[in-house]
Nucleic acid binder design. Sequence first.
DNA 1: TTGTAGGCGTTATCAA
DNA 2: TTGATAACGCCTACAA
Lengths: 367, 367
Amino acid sequence: MSTLKEIAQYVGVSSASVSIYLNDNATNRISPRTKLKIDEAIKKFKYQRNMFARNLSTSKSNIIGIIFPTIVPMFMNDFTNPILSGVQSRLSANGYAMLFFPSFAGTSSEIAKRQLTASVGCDGYILFSTGFCSLQDILANVQELQNLQKPYVTLNIPELDLPINQVILKDLDSTLGIEYLLGKGFRQILLVLGREKDVHTRSMMKKIPNLLKQRGIPFDDRYVIYGNYTAEDSAKEFSRFLDMGIPVEAICCMSDIMAASITTAIKQSGLSVPEDISVMGRNNSLYSRISDPQLTTMDLHMFEAGQSAANLLFDSLAGGDAKQKVAIAGTIVERKSVPKAGRDSLASRIDHTFSLPACRRHWYSVV
Amino acid sequence: MSTLKEIAQYVGVSSASVSIYLNDNATNRISPRTKLKIDEAIKKFKYQRNMFARNLSTSKSNIIGIIFPTIVPMFMNDFTNPILSGVQSRLSANGYAMLFFPSFAGTSSEIAKRQLTASVGCDGYILFSTGFCSLQDILANVQELQNLQKPYVTLNIPELDLPINQVILKDLDSTLGIEYLLGKGFRQILLVLGREKDVHTRSMMKKIPNLLKQRGIPFDDRYVIYGNYTAEDSAKEFSRFLDMGIPVEAICCMSDIMAASITTAIKQSGLSVPEDISVMGRNNSLYSRISDPQLTTMDLHMFEAGQSAANLLFDSLAGGDAKQKVAIAGTIVERKSVPKAGRDSLASRIDHTFSLPACRRHWYSVV
DNA sequence: TTGTAGGCGTTATCAA
DNA sequence: TTGATAACGCCTACAA
């Protein structure tokens, strides 16, 4: 590749002149004739500026580092993909590139640390947590990020009592889905959770017994199974549950995939949804719309959360130093797998306008 | 952020010494005492090296630029996600980061050009084409990439008669699925294609009439509908097809999503799959396994194609200058939506070992 | 309208 | 074992 200097030499001007022209084609500090000559030379040598040299010189990269600690391949997860997509769409619209660092083996905080170490120079960062991040890991990562003294936003991370920019999926560990089913009058509700050890799962489990107690329902841990967010595991665990022979009226799943898988299992066992058993999913993914019957589901608004994180970052990048906490509320999308009849204590959370992902309605509450 | 120089000054050595130590902790060119002092200083100032300065100095970035021209948000596509995932997993394992450039409005070649212009300095590139890239665009992009004089690989791009590294999804525009159904003895086959104008769709359409003619089946364009890869459009088009009242024995869809959507439509119309109509999907995605009945599908091996592209890039990066063309053959995964009975002319293409995506079997043919 | 010179933060080559 | 010093390629005052 040719360099600025070479172009300048060829044209017979200084590299400063070429640089000035390149950074502002319309400048009047360079004569039209010189401009023409520079254009020619650039075409002739197929010159393109070196991004790293520019970044170094200007201390600005237009690159946002994505700190995403994972031990499985990225872009294969129906929960994090929409979040990443939201981030990407906003960053892209504002001219920022996204840098994904390598993610090897190790604890999540080791990975994040390595990712951060390799990344100094980005204009800002977005810190994700994934399924295998412990709270301790997350705090270590935030600490590490703080050292970089660059704007950053945390995303998909439990609410932290720290003065940092954070976007929170308010209903990631909430009991909204269960409350919805309780509101319909169901009392024997099977919970299909994700991974037993995940931060969010644990947080949710802490709230369940009390919630039930308030309605006079004793907590029975046989009504909790872990499907690991996969179709296979949830089907297996569900069949084990059925074998116990205890009654169920409704099933509250922490992902559409698990809900779809269990719906199929129910139908195959000769029962029908929602006549015999109601099923509720989560994420409002394509699975919930392809499933038969279409699934009533909870939408956490992941895409919007991603967009929101990018927006917070832009605020920071623009010099705003107020740390913001944006909580994004989930909504319930009523479809066919839960009967509409029954009293609704959660009217305000039900999204009646919903049709397609593109026209999502949502609201932000800046805490 | 502190710099090397500051650390060196604090310790009382030259920045060269610190640099040497940082690049090789085990060096014996630096005394143990100095090493200790440097460690302290680094900890004290929370020093981390600036990536761009390193890149500039070493002409090596450990960053691979992903040229991905799209007008819709990334990471929302069940076809490209597994490809990206394959790329990511290999790059990551070898310590490379992935840089995604902003993608605005414009033609795909304008976007690619802007992405490339902003990217000089990456160690290598992977060029994607997406649904809205015309062949002309693609050729322009390749040309542009050539100028950068860096290793690159094209991926998800129609086979090009150029001496460049390319990974080809051999069956992306092949008639394998149709041949499979023909082999089962079906003659009235509905084709559910993606977008009418896509390069791959057109390429496939060119082959269909001949294929049918060979078996003595006249080509009837009422047996071709376009579902735009969405559940909604394919359901709509399918219902329009049904209204025509012409007979169908089997349906060959270019995505599992469309196949799942159509399967649901068939069941809702009172018919059953595969007893009344056989349905075949493509991609071997989660949809094909969640669908009821589970879908017989064609696996293009996108994940492996992504891995393969990364591998080709590594070869190039290591100095290998033989341009390689790797064609990845698709396989058919037999499940429940097509009866197993019937003569099989394609035995070698049927993947009997298949169970989960993790244990994919595939083969490469280096052309 | 153009050129000079210094700097961005690191690495690499010598010489000491 | 260490220190000068010159790159790397570009940007930006400031001077001319």
